[in-house]
Design a protein around this nucleic acid. Structure first.
Length: 351
DNA sequence: AATGCGTGGCC
DNA sequence: TGGCCAAGCAT
């Protein structure tokens, strides 16, 4: 048996004993999983931790058990359920994908067919093809990049090393149980071959691992230096009027695209006046860190004198901060604290 | 090819 | 505590 085959065999034996139990997962050797659940979980897991995804996955599948159910949901409903998970383009693409899949009568079962759908790229198409359709596709995500970089002691920094990593990952992908192999690589990366202080002593691949042999495991993969994060500033207006609160749906593209939000300005490239005349008072500052900048958002609270020029007044009784993205939840929390004595806000807030 | 795009947890 | 990191995709 060749070295590369031994790697797959040893990893699958480890997975048979140590696979994590996850809501979207079929036990090792249990065959293929429901493509809808595989797809939904993989999209949610893009750049997102398992711990953060679990609750969202359970709520989505309870609300929409089949892809046809999700396809029939309203845009705003899906955005509200996604709120807090981040990377909101995923939610918009999720719905577009569900509708495309429903229109064509089910998920395509090939890499190329899957990759043509919105929100499904090289990683996700390979994951669905392998896990749901038992195709011998090679899945390359952040875990696989780390495991392969160490296994073969690749010292070229990411992202330049990607082509080499992909070729080596393909060379260890087995023809049988490709889905279990993909999930095994990810479990290994998540639990043993971790970014810092990898647990080489209990790793099923420690014998063939070149980085371990060279004492380099914790130093790989090397990465190109990151750019500094600029600091941005902005304002957000939380407007109240007769038991209603002023909200708007953000433009479909760009920062927090398509999410429900309080009107704001200055931090996202926009430069806007207050959305309405009101006794605006600055009550605090929300601190938030996005992928490529940090933000100080000054929170203004006011009672409207007249109808707003943008946004929509929504009854407080029908408003839940859970439908807002994280940044806007922080702004709301500041307003909520500042008005602890005001009945207007709190009689409807059963936190 | 490099950049834009969230959030929470970790040490 | 601030930087780093997590099952990437679109453009």
């Amino acid at each position: 048996m060749r070295d590369r085959e031994v790697i797959a065999k040893d990893l699958l034996e480890w997975y048979d004993r140590h696979a994590r139990t996850l809501p979207w997962r079929v036990p090792p050797g249990g065959g293929t999983a429901d493509p809808y659940r595989v797809w939904l979980s993989e999209v949610m897991l893009q750049q997102t931790t398992v711990a953060a995804v679990k609750g969202y996955f359970l709520r989505f599948t309870a609300l929409w058990p089949r892809v046809e159910d999700l396809a029939g949901a309203e845009d705003a409903e899906v955005m509200a359920e996604w709120a807090g998970l981040g990377y909101y383009a995923r939610a918009r693409n999720l719905l577009a994908c569900a509708r495309a899949v429903t229109a064509r009568g089910g998920f395509p079962d090939t890499l190329e067919g899957l990759a043509a759908l919105p929100g499904i790229g090289p990683y996700t198409s390979a994951a669905i093809a392998a896990i749901a359709f038992d195709r011998a596709e090679t899945v390359v995500d952040g875990n696989v990049e780390r495991v392969i970089s160490r296994l073969f002691a690749i010292e070229t920094p990411l992202p330049a090393s990607r082509p080499q990593i992909r070729a080596l990952a393909q060379s260890v992908t087995p023809a049988t149980r490709p889905g279990d192999f993909a999930q095994a690589m990810m479990d290994l990366g998540a639990t043993i071959c971790t970014p810092r202080s990898p647990a080489c002593a209990i790793c099923p691949l420690n014998a063939p691992c070149k980085a371990r042999t060279l004492g380099l495991a914790a130093d790989l993969p090397r990465k190109a230096p990151k750019k500094p994060k600029p600091q941005r500033q902005g304002k957000v207006w939380i407007g109240l009027s007769q038991g209603r609160i002023l909200l708007e749906t953000r433009p479909a593209k760009g920062l927090l695209g398509g999410t429900l939000a309080f009107p704001s300005t200055g931090w996202d490239g926009s430069d806007q006046p207050p959305p309405a005349a009101a006794d605006w008072q600055e009550i605090g500052t929300a601190q938030h860190v996005f992928t490529h900048f940090s933000l100080e958002l000054r929170v203004l609270l006011g009672r409207l004198d007249s109808n707003p020029q943008r946004g929509e007044l929504v009854p407080l009784a029908g408003f839940s901060p859970n439908a807002l993205p994280g940044l806007m939840r922080k702004a709301w929390a500041i307003a909520s604290d500042a008005t602890a004595g005001l009945s207007d806000l709190h009689e409807n807030r059963q936190a």
